[in-house]
Structures are given as structure tokens and as C-alpha cells.
Simulated assay, not measured.
Amino acid sequence: MRLDTSAELQEFREEVRSFIRAHAPARKTRTGVRSPEPALLPELRRWTARLYAAGYLGRSWPVDHGGLDDPRPEPGFVVAEELARARSWGQIGAGALAAGALLAHGTEEQKRHFLPRLRSGADLWCQLFSEPEAGSDLASLRTRARLEGDHYVVDGQKVWTTNAQYADVGYLLARTDPDAPKTRGITAFALDMRSAGVEIRPLREITGDADFNEVFLDGVRVPADRVIGTVNAGWRVAGASLAHERGSVAAHSSELLDDLAGLLALARREDADGRTPLDEPALRARLGRLATRVRVADLMSRAVQSRMAAGTEGPTDAAAVKVLFSETNLDAVTLGVELQGLDGLLVRGDEDAVDDGYWQDALLYARAYTIAGGANEVLRTTVAERSLGLPREPRP
């Protein structure tokens, strides 16, 4: 089932497109989940406030917290698709994740404090989950939080934290009971990123940018009333967040379709002799296979969206979509660079770079998609064991 067939949703889609055309900040020139330039931050905070005020973000929130109390995921899918199609910015940071945790498990005082600031763009959140030895196996995290009086004292290290250099608040998972089973001794916190003992170190990537950061926590004091949910129940709090991050399933499909159109344009470029890459049978076959995978990825995304809308999604539906998207994306941008011939050696910033070096930058970033959100190797094992019922992989 396609979700854009009803007249109501199509009307909503046109409304969202018009809103983006009228109000969106500068168009994104780079693919992936990237940190903005510092000069763009004030505008992106205002843009976040506009999206919430218009009802395009936070639709499922309770009315008394500014939402529409609309649990349907379909409008959220439409917004995510249109933002991706327009290469526009969505809400940067981990605000959607934090809102999911606060709405499901936060105290009324926490909701009254944090949710309006999140809606207005006053607070930008980052996600302090992954650690050097706890990425896809997040339950192995080692950052500790011990109670001293009315504060928790946190020590540890987080890594791959996007937007940490800009964040006002960190959505932190830390171990509060080192003797409990892995998932049962973890607590969620709302951490003031300006607290003493928080050190942020940018990680320079192959793209030349520093979208990710290491975050070191050295004796950081967090008030006990900043625990989200109950102590040692942080794993359940983190799970509640995921229901508010479903839009990526829709956004990825739009990105692939957009890149396919770009590949076709590259393949039709004539050389000095008037020939195009499409004149080569092998290239036509390769492009045809890739186009098929893009369409399959789009259909799989639509099918998963349909099951989400009906409340019948499986435990690994989103994981399967992510694996197919990330690997198809990697092959697509690789072909985008190859189609440029020697010009493929040029990069963003070179005067003669095709499409301002978009394909080169996307290729350098594409491998991250196969790792972020759970490495594909781990997700394949999860799909095999939890959906296909295959024998469990031996555990040490």
C-alpha cells in the first residue's frame, strides 16, 4: 500500500511543499546527518520553531504540550519525505528522541521545562549513547553514574555524538548498577552540556568535516531530578524514544529516488565525441540493476510505513529497510563518481567539480550510513534471529 493515495494526505503533502518553499532555510548541499555551519544555527533554531508551530513536528504530542494528539504516523512520513526531497533541514540534533523519552517517562516538571524549549528551538539536544566499546552493542556501555546526595556523579566517555559542539542538553545513558544484567542497570538523564567536567573533542572525518564528537565526562554532577523515568530503567526509556524517530524510514526513500534522477542526468552527459555513458551496454545494465534496487527499496519503505500505520510492524522491519537503503546508497554514489571519469577526482570546492562535488562528498560519507544506527552486520544477525527464526549466532 502506498501512503500518498488518499486525497487528504495528498492535500497535506502539497501544503507541506508550499510551506517548505516559503519558509525553509538555505538548501542543504551535502548528504547525510551533518552538523550545520555555526552561522546557520540561529536560523535553524527558528526553523525548528516554525515546524512545530505549524504542526509538522510533534503532531503526536498531547495537546496540553503543544501537539495535535494525532497518533497517526502517515503525516510524519509525508513531512520527512518532503524535507528530504527538498534537501531541506529538519530538526537537527536528538530532539525527537528526547521528546519521545520525556513524553513516555518524564515527570510533569520535566515536561513543562524541556518540551516548550525543545519546540521553540531554544534547546538543541544531542544523543549520548554510543561509546568506544559500546556501539551496536549499546547495552555494554561503561559510563558510570553514582548517587551522591541529591546529584549523580558521572564518569565515562561517549563517541560519535553529532552536534555535541552545539548542544544545550544531552540525552545520556549511564550505568547506575554495575552488578545488574546489561540492560537492567542503565539510567537515562537529561544532562546540561555546559556542566563542569564535560569536554567535547571534534572528530575530523574523511569528508574533512567534524560532524561527530567525542564527549568526555569527568566527575560531571547531574541533579537527581534530571533522571528520565526511573533509576535502572533507562533501557526501556531509550526504547520509548524510537517510536518518535520513524521518519527516517520515509526520508531515506526520497534520498535514493533523488540520487537515481541525478545518476540518469550524469549518464546522459556527452563527451567531446558526442557519446554518453548510456551508449555502453554494460553501464546500461549496471544502471538498470541499480534502478531496480532503488525501486525495491522504495517499495519496502512504503510497505513498512503501511505496517507502522496499521500497528502491525515487525521487530526488524526498520532494520531491514536501513540495510537495503544504506547499501544501495553506497553503490549509487559510487557510480555517481565513476560516471564523471577523471572529473571524479575533483572534490567539493574545486571550481570544475560536477554538481559542486556532491557525489564525491556523498561517497565519502556513505559508509557511515552502513554503520550508524547499528552496523549492517549486526542488523542482519538481528533480522535473521528475530524475524526469520534462524539459529542464534554463538555468543562468547
Rank of each mutant, 00 (worst) to 15 (best):
L68P: 02
V323L: 06
P73D: 06
A318H: 05
N163A: 07
A224R: 12
E245V: 05
Q110A: 08
G274E: 02
V154Y: 01
S136W: 00
V231M: 04
D4Y: 09
A320K: 09
G156H: 07
A265E: 15
V153N: 04
H113K: 14
R236T: 06
S88D: 14
R380L: 14
E214W: 14
V249I: 15
V323M: 05
R226P: 04
A303C: 11
D155L: 07
A319T: 10
Q340E: 15
F325C: 07
A375V: 12
A167K: 01
P42I: 07
G55C: 11
A167I: 02
G288M: 04
H151Q: 14
E377Y: 07
L363R: 12
V16N: 04
A362D: 06
Q157M: 11
Y52M: 02
R268H: 06
G341C: 10
A332I: 03
K111Q: 14
D150I: 00
E255T: 12
A368M: 04
R307F: 05
Y152Q: 03
L203I: 15
L191Y: 03
R275L: 15
I371H: 06
S60K: 10
R21N: 11
G341T: 06
A22Q: 11
L290A: 10
F12I: 03
T276Q: 14
R246C: 09
E351L: 14
R226C: 10
L191D: 02
D137Y: 07
Y56M: 14
V79G: 06
V222D: 00
L379D: 03
L342K: 00
A368G: 01
T187S: 15
S60M: 09
G106W: 01
E81F: 13
T161R: 00
E43M: 01
P223I: 00
E11R: 12
T370E: 12
E205H: 09
G197W: 15
D298C: 08
D279T: 08
V79K: 02
L290N: 09
F12V: 03
T31W: 10
Q91F: 03
I371G: 00
S195A: 15
E148Y: 02
L147H: 13
F19K: 05
T187D: 06
Q110N: 08
G288Q: 04
A122P: 04
E74G: 01
T382Y: 10
R34W: 03
P178N: 10
R34L: 05
A196F: 05
L68D: 13
P391D: 11
L173D: 02
E199W: 00
G344D: 02
A24S: 15
P202K: 06
A375P: 03
